[in-house]
Design a protein around this nucleic acid. Structure first.
Lengths: 136, 136
DNA sequence: TATTATCCTATCGATTTGATAGAGTATGCA
DNA sequence: TGCATACTCTATCAAATCGATAGGATAATA
């Protein structure tokens, strides 16, 4: 199941992408427009900024804004930042690989075999979608 | 992330499928072979039986066994039984559909648009894999 | 009738999740 | 300079979920 963090983060990003200009938008405005708890959204926007997707400005007239063009923001990156590994099992993860301690042989593991396919199919989707694609 | 319940369930199923005959296998034997907590596995096998994938026999010489041929057991069914909905968000679920309370319009929702593709790609994988495919 | 092995419910500690509170910090403007 | 604004950061919290365990009930076999 997708976490609310990811869901809210995606909504905030697509809201920012849907605006014509790249002026800073206040947390309160985003929260109100997307029906999200403002304080929770605050922490999400913070992680998006720290990971380089958003910029921020303090004080009057401040807020958050997209740093890159929506068509240059890949869903693979967004998902990894918000949701973590795309693979459902560490032993098939590209960026977060970890061996299963209980599994003697990956090559003959049914879980491994299935989850590898699932990971590839999800990856294909995320690689073919930019933020711009989602607001069309 | 895949739950251990699903992971263990898949391993148990593929172990049973890998055996030549369809004689009952004791929980203890499956647990030992797959390095799984026996008591935890017990509850998993119980749900697999209640959902119709496994049969069981009590008393001496008892245990669990596959009811159907491995090539007739689809991963869509297995995953729904063990892990629940295949969709990452209820609003794109085929079998567990639920409207998002915060989302005014599904058609214009970025999360909806993305998760629909992810669900379809996962579904394609699960539909093309039977239990027999995983033990080859 | 004794043994074997599944059936079932209840519970438990640890972790994660979603959310909130509040003080700190930098910016813009009068 | 001083004040209002809005992000920054840490700490906390209730609820839910997860993985695991315990123990008695039930059914089948010999």
């Amino acid at each position: 199941m997708l976490s609310k963090k990811t869901k809210y983060g995606l909504k905030a990003l697509s809201f920012l992408a849907s605006l014509e200009d790249r002026q800073p938008v206040q947390i309160a405005e985003i929260a109100k427009h997307e029906n999200i708890s403002q304080k929770f959204l605050e922490s999400i926007l913070l992680t998006l900024r720290k990971s380089g997707l958003l910029g921020s400005k303090k004080g009057k007239g401040g807020g958050y804004y997209l740093i890159k063009d929506p068509k240059d923001i890949l869903m693979t990156d967004v998902m990894r930042i918000l949701e973590g590994p795309i693979a459902l099992v560490p032993c098939v993860s590209l960026n977060f690989y970890e061996k299963c301690e209980d599994c003697p042989d990956e090559a003959s593991c049914a879980v491994h075999k299935l989850m590898l396919q699932v990971r590839d199919s999800a990856l294909t989707v995320y690689r073919h979608n930019t933020l711009a694609d989602l607001i069309k």
